[in-house]
Design a protein around this nucleic acid. Structure first.
Lengths: 134, 134
DNA sequence: TGATGAACAATGTGTTCATCG
DNA sequence: CGATGAACACATTGTTCATCA
């Protein structure tokens, strides 16, 4: 049965009816790591700023969960570092994220999968608009 | 605080990160009722057929849940009827759905809200494509 | 098997709390 | 307050079970 397989695959990739917030955030995190953009909290505020006009406020917990998952998946690894240059004045430890050896490759694959899902969602939404609004 | 209010409203309307499957299905059900398209099971198979090319299989339970909610919201009311013309051969009872007095009006309002959400989702998805794929 | 419905389980996400320097 | 993390609670959904005439 082809359909059963397809459902299985989508299940394995964690795809539901629409794209999951987690996947959406991961996509942005990957892009940010590609650009060597700082650490978790910075990415959080960056996304918050970025999405302000869209009325979407990415929750703090989701950002961290997404980062942890990307580490789990072997895409990223972590390094710790003191934020300030002078340890005497700033003890704040931050966590930086980098691609693992095959991380960039894995990331590309993941992005491809997400792209497929994004397109699928776009199709579904366009269809709904066409079908239900005259 | 304006943002808190906005979140509250979206919460009350059941809006999450992306549009909910329930809302999406409700939209189609309303349209089908507008077109006097049969009963629950028929709408289910119709949607299954309709979405086959999209790889989306609307679950049976969601259809019924959506119909029940529309009744709860006072948009639809139910009538029961025997499916076959001859009660001696076919005792299958089916449930037909119709708009209540102000049902059509309520439905229009709901559709407008969903449209807003659909557009918001489309924007978010387009943005993700633009931001993360070169 | 057609048709409707509900119970139950799992998952994703929002909220809150905890910690640390 | 910046930064990271986890606990907990809740809502939406998927799966399974139940029933009917």
């Amino acid at each position: 049965m082809n359909r059963k397989l397809q459902v299985k695959i989508r299940r394995r990739l964690g795809m539901g009816f629409m794209i999951a917030q987690r996947a959406y955030i991961k996509l942005y995190l990957i892009t940010m790591v590609e650009q060597h953009r700082g650490y978790g909290y910075e990415m959080l505020v960056a996304m918050k700023q970025e999405f302000k006009p869209y009325g979407y406020v990415p929750p703090q917990s989701e950002i961290y969960r997404a980062l942890h998952e990307l580490v789990q998946q072997g895409v990223l690894y972590r390094t710790k570092k003191l934020k300030g240059n002078d340890p005497k004045v700033d003890f704040q430890e931050i966590v930086l994220y980098h691609f693992t050896n095959d991380g960039a490759e894995k990331a590309e694959l993941y992005k491809k999968q997400v792209k497929t899902d994004l397109d699928r969602c776009l199709n579904m939404l366009h269809k709904a608009v066409n079908d239900n609004y005259s």
